[in-house]
Every structure is written in C-alpha cells, then in structure tokens.
Design a protein around this nucleic acid. Sequence first.
DNA 1: GGTGACTTTGG
DNA 2: CAAAGTCAC
Length: 467
Amino acid sequence: MLLHWHRRDLRATDNVALARAADECAVLPVFVFDDDVLAHASPPRVAFMLDALAELRRWYRERGGDLRLARGDPADVLVEAAEARDADGIYWNRDYSGLAQRRDERVAGALDAAGLTHERFHDALLHEPGSVTTNDGDPYSVYSYFARKWRDREKEAPYDAPDGDALADVRGDPLPSLADLGFDEPEAEVESAGMDVARERLDAFCDGPIYEYAERRDYPADGCTSRLSAHLKWGTIGIRATYAATEDAMDRAGSDAAREAVEAFRGQLAWREFYAHVLYFDPDVVTRNYRDYENEIDWRDDEGERRAWKDGRTGYPVVDAGMRQLREEGYVHNRVRMIVASFLTKDLLADWREGYDWFRERLVDHDTANDNGGWQWAASTGTDAQPYFRIFNPWTQGERYDPDAEYVREYVPELAGATPDEIHSWHELDPDERESVAPDYPAPIVDHGERRERALATFERARGGNG
DNA sequence: GGTGACTTTGG
DNA sequence: CAAAGTCAC
C-alpha cells in the first residue's frame, strides 16, 4: 500500500501522484494539518480549504475509502501514518514555493531514515519549472516571450480518478472546525469549494463567457471571468482538465474572435505558470524586489492613509469598491487588483509588501507566486514590470472599465444614489456638491496629480537620476 | 549589436 | 504620441 499526501491538490481526478499510486497498489489518501503552514494561514483561506477537504473526503467515502487526517509536523506524522498501516511509502505532488520545498526535503529525509519509499510528481503546472527557458537555457524574466514558448509546448491530457477498489478501506477522524485550528470566522463570505463546484464553474465558463473573455475580462461588473483562481490555488480542479476544457471550447468556437478569446484565457494560465517559474528560480522575491534600483525606494509609511486604503475609505470610488469587495468576498476582480495596487504603491507610496500582506490575509485565492508577481508588477519592481513612469490614473481607470459605475455602486453603498458622472468626477465636485450627492462618502484623501509627481520623483531618485 | 516589444498609460 | 528601460532574439 502507498499513502498519497494531499496538499494543494484537494481533488481525486486529474491528480498525477494519486493516479500513479493507484496504478501500483491500494492507496490511502492523507492530509496533514501542518502547524508551520497554519501559522502563515488566514481564516478565509482555511475556511475554503476545510470546505474542499470535506468534499474530498465525501468523494472517497462514497467509494469505500476515506481521507486520513493528521496534525503536526509532516515529517513525524506521515512516518507514523505509514507505519501504522504498514505502507511501503508515500507519493505526493510538488509545490514550487521555497517554504514548501524546504519542508518536502525534510519529509523526504525522514522517510528515508524510516526506510519508506517516496516519490514526487509534477502536477500543479502544465509545464514544470525549468522546462520553458530562453534559448540560452535561462529562466524567462519577460512574460511575452515565455508565453509564446509556453503556448507551443504540447500539453498533457487529464489523469483519471482512481477506481474505488484502489482505495484502502479505512475510517478517518472527523474534520476539525476553523475554531479547532485556532482561527476566527472570516469576515468575508467565503465562496464554496470542492471538486464539483470547480468543475461546474469551469464548464459554465467554457460554455459561453470564455468567448467574451478577450473583450470583456477587464470590466469588473461583467462577470465574464472564470472565477477559478481559488480552485487552481487549492487544486480542486486540475490544470490539465482546465486546459482540456479550453481545447473543447476552442473546437466549438465559431469565429476568429471566439478563438482569440479562448487564447486570451490561456494567456492567463500562462501568467500563472510564468510567476510560478519565477518564484521557483528566485524564492527570495517573496520579500525582496525582483528588480534592483540603484538606491532604496523611499516608501512612505503613513498609517492613516494605509488604513483608509484597507477600509475602502480613500475617496477614490473604484479603489474603495475593490477594497470592500476584498473584505466582503475574499476576492477582487483582477483589473481592480491592479488599480488598488497601483494606488497603494504609487499614490500612497506604501511598500508593496504592505499590500501583499493584506492580500495574503484576506484573499481566498492567495497564491505566493501570483500575488507576489502581481504586486511587484504594480510597484514597478518586478519581472516585466510596469515602468515606474507609467502610473495608473484611478479616475481614468474607473471611467474606462466601470463606465456605468455598476461595480462601484455594488460595493460602495454610500454612492448607490450617485450618477456615473458624479462618481467618475468625484474629485472635481466641490464640497457642497459632494455633501448633497453622497454625504457619507469621503472626499479623496490625496490629490492624484500631486501624488503622481511625487512617485515619479521618488522612483527617479531610486533609479539614480537627478530628479 | 541593433531592434522590436512591453497585461500600455497619461496628457 | 511621448515616455524611455530592458529583455530576448
């Protein structure tokens, strides 16, 4: 018998290590509540994870197996679990972040010492780190070239779920609650997890919205995005199954525009892989600027401004809408993530790590590689970064991507009675007008024009110029 | 080594 | 249409 150690692959279908183990012998799936991991976790993510685990366990139970649970240091509890069932060894899928890799090395050492076999598989990405490189063999630091090569590579087909007769007949312990794990209830209404929800989302997306993706994905009120981010983070859907669904969608596409839209969605999958590769080859970017400036960037540390950003009380409607969506749903539309990130790092000149930490605490779909990549992109410190002199104008962005102010009015009730025009020109209204339009909504806390100049000068100094 | 391209944006 | 640095080829 083999153990399969579930980590960020909370699914039974299209799971490489699980499928390989089930090909060989009986499999006992196990999940470890790792104290080190929980120390870095937050309520919305753990809530989603527990929901996914409950459904995974149900899947196993319906087929005569079960998901074993353990808590503690995986190097200890996995050895115990294997020995208790007289298993030969453990299979699992790789996790490419630095922390996980160090832990996995430790676990592998403990298994070796106990005389247990172990094997690690590539599963989380269509193309593993190191397999998409420049012609010189170096990892890419520019997305567009990476994406071109990534697109041309052949993709693996999805893996089958194990048969019921491959599952070891066991009964596990009950699932712990959030409170058992030491977490408060999340403030956000966390979306439901699990393989079935993920599959339904993927199918619904590929049935229609995917064909609008190229044109409409940047409009946060439109809802034509896949909403698969949390599922891809926790592995409640497999990446091969996801890609295969885009192939079916491509076959059904009736026009060049529709095919381009499917291709645009695949581009987002390529971004995910690009950032995973970047993090794999440069794990320090979690805390360090990817791109070095000659001098330190003079980040400002204004507690009040940062608070206003977190609370969605900056007086910039689209920024506040995004920050409130984060608070309420543990999710933010991607275009809005760029807008709020630009506002924090450029208008407020707050260190991108402040924003990254807040997202990590609040996002259900938080993923180290993606979030770090996104924040450093916005802060002009990352790979393929937005050049520092290109600073989002939150007024223009709001007008362009939320023209009818639908998104703003959904998340900022103080502005529910304002017209789109009043919302997009909120900074140009005089105090009396603001008072009569939306008395409870704040005036902009900073002047974008001034802050833009300040950011340009700050980055110019960091670059070593005379500005 | 010159050149095209850049989750293009702001004015 | 200017900004304007850097990567990959």
